[in-house]
């Protein structure tokens, strides 16, 4: 919960725990298999090393990230609450 930055209250936690035990219990079917020698598939594609030339490039979505910030100051910097108490 700490890792996921989520707070779960008592009742919610009870249901969640039960659901997760059931789901993770189901996953245990994988443990019965001897597949250690198989190379894991780590993505959806077999493409490797997609490079582009190391040149200046004007992004087509320029500014679109900062435009979406919910809170900015006058210079379009992202405004956040203090990190340290």
């Amino acid at each position: 919960m700490e890792l996921a930055r989520l707070e779960i209250d008592g009742r919610e936690e009870e249901k969640l725990l039960k659901d997760l035990q059931k789901i993770v219990g189901y996953f245990d079917e994988l443990k019965e298999l001897d597949i250690e020698s198989t190379e894991p598939m780590t993505g959806g594609t077999d493409l490797n090393n997609v490079f582009r030339d190391d040149k200046d490039k004007q992004g087509t979505n320029l500014g679109s990230g900062t435009n979406g910030f919910p809170e900015t100051n006058d210079d379009n910097f992202l405004k956040i609450p203090p990190v340290f108490e």
Partner: peptide, 20 residues
């Protein structure tokens, strides 16, 4: 709650509390 949109009334004076 920082980069895309923020739910109102769930503000906080501290970054970590805001995440939560």
């Amino acid at each position: 709650g920082i980069r895309y949109s923020r739910i109102k009334n769930k503000e906080s004076d501290n970054l970590k509390k805001l995440y939560f």
